[in-house]
């Protein structure tokens, strides 16, 4: 069983937290913090297994992690999971993210935390590995996205309009407005 999946960056900021066992929010933050401290002090060339998160698990649990650029992906699993298998699952997860976001980077995870959750839920369900085949996962996600697009057909129009308005850079656009050259116009004005 997987007990928790955590993604945080090099500074310990959580980017995704999924707990398959209930912890209250405070404890969740402590676990993230502790896990970060354990993981972050390890070199990149040491092994990816770690024992001894005191808050989560106990002797039967291991932290299995991978470090990609600015992000740590940490799975907390018990002894029924294969260590190397989980490492591979992390790889599948990240590759899937990469496909879905088209060259994923930390910002994608920041701004689309919900989407990351949805992707994860196609890999792991309730702490058990659901699907490890990347193509299947992506098919499922695309199907769901299609569904959402259909639903939002007309009703999303206002939302889209809003987002366009919001992303409008008005000061810049005012600057960019081209006015006719007035003096010239005046000059040209013939009385």
């Amino acid at each position: 069983m997987i007990k928790a999946i955590l993604v945080f960056n090099n500074h310990g900021k959580p980017r995704l937290s999924k707990f398959y066992q209930y912890f209250d929010e405070n404890l969740q933050q402590q676990i993230i913090k502790e896990t970060f401290q354990l993981v972050s002090k390890r070199d990149d060339n040491v092994c990816n297994f770690l024992e001894g998160g005191s808050l989560i698990g106990g002797s039967d649990y291991k932290l299995i992690y991978r470090h990609y650029a600015t992000l740590y992906f940490v799975f907390c699993v018990d002894s029924s999971e294969s260590e190397l298998g989980i490492l591979d699952l992390i790889q599948v997860f990240v590759e899937t993210l990469d496909k879905c976001f088209e060259n994923v980077c930390e910002l994608d995870l920041i701004f689309h935390a919900d989407a990351v959750h949805h992707i994860l839920s196609e890999l792991v369900m309730g702490g058990m590995v659901l699907q490890t085949n990347m193509n299947d996962i992506i098919t499922r996600i695309e199907d769901q996205n299609k569904l959402i697009k259909q639903e939002s057909g007309i009703s999303a129009a206002p939302a889209r309009a809003v987002s366009v308005v919001k992303s409008m850079n008005i000061p810049q656009q005012i600057k960019d407005i081209k006015l006719p050259d007035l003096p010239q116009a005046i000059k040209d004005l013939k009385f």
Partner: peptide, 30 residues
């Protein structure tokens, strides 16, 4: 080269844009 160029929110911090280097194949043979 296939990257989409424009991502509006990418601008704030270049640090986040580091690609995650996923291309390293895992040791596993799955």
């Amino acid at each position: 080269s296939q990257h989409k160029e424009k991502r509006t929110h990418k601008s704030p911090a270049s640090e986040y844009e580091q690609p995650m280097g996923i291309s390293t194949p895992s040791k596993e043979m799955f």
